[in-house]
Simulated assay, not measured.
Amino acid sequence: MSNAIGGVFPVLPTVFDEAGEIDLDGLGNVIEFALACGVDGLVFPGLASEYDMLSLEEREALIGFVGARVAGRANFVVGASGDDVATSIRLATAGAGAGAVAAMVMTPKAIGPDTGLLGAFYSALGRQAVLPLMVQNAPVPMGLGLDTAQLRAVVEATDSIRWVKEENMPCGQRISEMLADPPAHLLGVFGGAGGRYITDELARGAIGTMPAVETPEIHVALMRAHRAGNEEAVRDLYEAVLPILMMQAVFRWRLTKEVLRRRGVIDSAFTRAAGPRFDPGDHAELSRILSRLEPLLGGAAVTSLSAPSVQTATR
């Protein structure tokens, strides 16, 4: 694996059984599914992993599991976000031991938007972590939603920061602003936000995307078309997947897991995190969306696209 990373890096969910316990077999199935779809790398744990619903010990153990299962077949970026340097170092160290190539660390809300304090945080982390860093600039309330000037000040505080994941709106404009005069040590900017703005991000110079993992083969095909300069194919794929991206923006983890469940990858769509739940109308809409997407969903783990039982639907 190389520091020259880029492409499609889905964020893995944490898979639970119906009792809310971690399902390692299910997580392993998601990893194999994503790799079979041709992704360039995987990220864990991130916001889409419900990481704030996991204990620090669970996060460390799962990082080891993911790294061992990926086993160098793709780049692995470890999520090492924490409210203090010690927590992020602990997670980055676990990631390094599991074969990660980078540690993605969200701007800590506990510190706030003071760029001096944030720069000190990442500088201290960079001195002690054994991985290069990626700053995740997520919008409020998940992150601090730094503007480009603030983010640039943080990146310039330490050459340990090699990448940015830009998710603060409008993402595309902020990517252009950062890349207009990038810090010398910055290797590139990833897009996020579930892949909802991927065409704009790539057009503005993003080196990759970090979406959720319900339809990775479509993101892989879109990235392949982008690299080949086939703008028409990029637009066709984006417009095809846009309905499910919009639904994912509302239901977040539940949408990703429900699609993976319907595709036969996992057994349960249980989430620990709170948020909107599907009603019968939502399940019907998802069925319509998946039916239209089916021609683009490759042979990797495509099974039933049916709605769940009433018991699962009302969870």
Rank of each mutant, 00 (worst) to 15 (best):
G79K: 08
L62F: 05
T87P: 06
V43R: 09
A36S: 14
G72D: 07
G119Q: 00
D84M: 09
A86E: 12
G112D: 07
A96E: 04
L118N: 08
L118E: 02
R73C: 09
G38A: 03
V105K: 01
A74E: 05
A98R: 01
A98I: 06
P113N: 03
A74G: 11
G116M: 09
T93G: 12
I111Q: 02
I63T: 15
M106T: 13
L54R: 03
I63N: 04
A102F: 04
G82Q: 04
G46A: 13
G41R: 01
G72V: 11
A120C: 08
P113V: 08
R73A: 14
V77R: 02
D83R: 13
D40S: 15
V78D: 04
G46N: 01
P45C: 13
G116C: 07
L42W: 02
L35H: 00
K109W: 01
A71P: 05
V105I: 11
G64C: 11
A96V: 00
S81E: 07
G67H: 11
T87R: 03
L117N: 09
F33G: 11
A61W: 07
T87S: 13
N75W: 11
G99I: 03
P113Q: 00
V70T: 05
K109D: 03
L118I: 02
G116V: 12
V43I: 11
M53P: 01
G67F: 02
P108T: 13
G64D: 08
F33Y: 15
A94S: 10
V70M: 01
G64E: 06
A92G: 08
D83I: 14
A96C: 00
G82I: 04
G116D: 08
V78G: 10
E60Q: 11
F44T: 01
T87L: 02
T115R: 01
L42A: 00
A34I: 02
T93C: 10
I63G: 12
V43M: 05
L47E: 09
M53K: 14
G82T: 14
G72P: 06
G97T: 05
V78S: 03
R73G: 12
A80W: 12
G99Q: 02
T87C: 14
T107F: 02
E50P: 14
D40M: 11
